[in-house]
């Protein structure tokens, strides 16, 4: 493979890894907080915002999502949108299914694997 291909792959891998890490931490934070709709009914919108902003895990997640965001901006600036957009969006679905199973202990049954793979290929075809 040519160096340009490796650079493109590295940019995409950075986005995918950072966004998977960020999403797992964010999801863990939101799980630990509990149903936001319920919190909002009890404590109002301010209470819901406070519940989120006082959760340290949330900021770890946001930190990685911010890295993912800026590396996506960087990648979009250098790579073709028809490559970077669908590649990052679709790969993230599969890495998240793996991370959700191992780190969040979500029940990723065959139904969810099938969904992750179908949506991954579908997003790629659609956005390509």
């Amino acid at each position: 493979m040519t160096p340009a291909v490796w650079i493109a792959a590295a940019m995409i891998a950075t986005v995918v890894l950072a966004s998977t890490t960020g999403e797992v931490f964010t999801a863990a934070a939101m799980k630990s907080i509990g149903d936001l709709d319920v919190i909002r009914e009890r404590a109002g919108l301010g209470g819901a915002i406070r519940a989120v902003l006082t959760c340290p895990l949330f900021f770890v997640g946001v930190f990685f999502l911010a890295i993912a965001f800026f590396s996506l901006l960087f990648a979009l600036n250098h790579l073709n949108l028809s490559l970077a957009g669908p590649a990052t969006a679709s790969l993230t679905l599969v890495t998240n299914a793996i991370a959700g199973k191992f780190f969040l202990k979500e029940n990723v049954d065959r139904r969810r694997w099938a969904a992750a793979v179908l949506v991954c290929v579908g997003v790629y075809l659609l956005a390509h």
Binding site: E23, V24, T26, A27, M30, K31, I33, G34, D35, L36, D37, V52, A89, T92, L93, N96, A97, G100, K101, L104, E106, N107, V108, R112, A115, A116, V119, G122, V123, L126, A127
Partner: peptide
């Protein structure tokens, strides 16, 4: 997204909301 994650799994929310790409298309 945060609200959805507070009552649903990550591995549910992500594929389900990919339907947005279809709506946009």
């Amino acid at each position: 997204y945060l609200t959805a994650l507070s009552w649903a799994d990550l591995t549910f929310v992500l594929p389900a909301t990919a339907f947005g790409y279809v709506i946009i298309a």
